[in-house]
C-alpha cells in the first residue's frame, strides 16, 4: 500500500469507527431508557420514585423488558469492541501513511485520535474488572463527541515530523501521556457520577440513570483505582520522560514552558486528590471535586495551551526552534 492509500484507509476508518461508536451509544441509550420506563410499565402507583433498582430486583419485573435491556447492553458492548478495533486501524493507517513511518501522535489531530482510542481501549480492558457497564453511555458519548471535534476542527494531513519531535522519546513520552489522559478521563466520569449520585441521594431523588449506577462508595473506589493507575503513568510522562527529552532537545530539563507548567499543575492537583482521599473533611465530595478540577486542567493543557499560548515550545507550529537574541523590528 502507498502512503496515500494508508491515509485514505485511516480517514475511512475514523469515519467508520465514529459511526459504530454512535450506534453503540444509541444501543446503550436504548438499554438505559428501557430501564427508566420500568416503573411505568409495571403500572403500579405504589412503586416509589426512587424504585428503579428495587423494581428490577423485585418480583414484578417485566422480563421482556429486562431481556431487551440485556440485549441492547450486550449489543452496545459488542459495537464498542468493533469500534475500538476500527479505531486502532485508523491509528495504524496514520502511522503507516507518514514517511518515514512513525507513531501516530505527531499533531493535535493525531493526539486526540490516540487519546480517544485509549479511553475506549481502557474502558474495554477494565470493563469486567471494575464492572463498568454503568459507564457505557457516557464513555461512548464522550468518544463520539471528541472524535467529531477532532475531525471537524483539528484535522490535519499526514505530515512528516518536525525535527525536535524526531526522537524515540516521542513514542514513550507521548504514549504515557495519552494513556494517563484516557485513564484520568475515565476516572473523572466516575467522580462526576459520584457527585451526582451523592447529591441525588441526599435530595431523595434517585431515579432513572442515576438510580442504576453503583452506590457512591463503589463509584468512589472505581474512580480512585482509575486515578491510582493514571497518576504514576502521568508522573512517568511528565516528570521523567518529559524532562529527559526536554534536556536533549532544548538543553534544559525544566523550562517552565506553559505546557510543562500545566502538566505540573495537573500533577499537583491529582496529588492533592490522592491526599484528600486520606484526609478527614476532604474525603468523598471534596476529593471528587478535586478530581474534576484535575481533569479540567488536563484538558485545558491539551487544548487550551496549544491554542492560546504561542510561546509554548509544545505548540508544534514550527520546525527547529528559532530564538531571538535581541529584540528586532523593521
Amino acid at each position: 500500500m502507498t502512503d496515500a492509500s494508508w491515509e485514505t484507509l485511516s480517514n475511512q476508518a475514523v469515519a467508520v469507527c465514529g459511526v459504530v461508536y454512535f450506534l453503540a451509544l444509541i444501543s446503550h441509550l436504548v438499554e438505559w431508557s428501557a430501564l427508566r420506563k420500568l416503573p411505568v410499565s409495571v403500572g403500579s402507583v405504589s412503586v416509589p420514585e426512587r424504585g428503579g433498582v428495587a423494581t428490577l430486583e423485585g418480583p414484578g419485573v417485566d422480563e421482556d423488558a429486562e431481556r431487551r435491556t440485556n440485549l441492547f447492553g450486550r449489543l452496545g458492548l459488542m459495537l464498542t469492541v468493533i469500534a475500538v478495533a476500527v479505531h486502532f486501524v485508523a491509528l495504524l493507517g496514520r502511522g503507516m501513511a507518514a514517511d518515514p513511518n512513525r507513531v501516530p501522535w505527531g499533531n493535535m489531530y493525531e493526539f486526540t485520535l490516540s487519546g480517544t482510542f485509549f479511553i475506549g481501549f481502557l474502558y474495554l480492558v477494565l470493563y469486567r474488572r471494575f464492572s463498568l457497564a454503568w459507564m457505557a453511555p457516557i464513555v461512548t458519548f464522550l468518544i463520539v463527541a471528541l472524535l467529531m471535534v477532532d475531525v471537524i476542527w483539528l484535522y490535519d494531513e499526514v505530515a512528516p515530523l518536525t525535527e525536535a519531535l524526531n526522537s524515540p522519546w516521542l513514542v514513550i513520552h507521548v504514549v504515557s501521556a495519552v494513556i494517563s489522559t484516557g485513564a484520568f478521563t475515565l476516572g473523572a466520569i466516575g467522580s462526576l457520577l459520584y457527585l451526582l449520585k451523592d447529591r441525588a441521594i441526599k435530595r431523595g431523588r434517585e431515579g432513572g440513570y442515576l438510580g442504576r449506577v453503583p452506590a457512591p462508595a463503589t463509584l468512589d473506589r472505581v474512580s480512585y483505582r482509575l486515578h491510582a493507575f493514571a497518576f504514576p503513568v502521568w508522573t512517568f510522562a511528565v516528570l521523567i520522560t518529559g524532562p529527559i527529552w526536554a534536556h536533549q532537545a532544548w538543553a534544559s530539563y525544566w523550562n517552565w514552558d506553559p505546557k510543562e507548567v500545566w502538566a505540573f499543575i495537573t500533577w499537583v492537583v491529582y496529588a492533592g486528590y490522592l491526599h484528600a482521599r486520606a484526609t478527614a473533611g476532604w474525603k468523598g465530595r471534596n476529593a471528587a471535586i478535586l478530581a474534576l478540577v484535575g481533569v479540567a486542567t488536563l484538558w485545558f493543557n491539551f487544548i487550551g495551551i496549544n491554542f492560546f499560548s504561542s510561546s509554548s515550545q509544545h505548540s508544534y507550529a514550527e520546525g527547529l526552534a528559532v530564538e531571538h537574541v535581541v529584540s528586532t523590528r523593521l
Binding site: 506553559p258 507548567v261 499543575i265 499537583v268 492537583v269 492533592g272 478535586l290
Partner: peptide, 13 residues
Amino acid sequence: LLLLALAAVPGSL
C-alpha cells in the same frame, strides 16, 4: 499543594 498549583498558573499566562 493546591496553592502551589494555583500560584503556578500566572506564569503560564
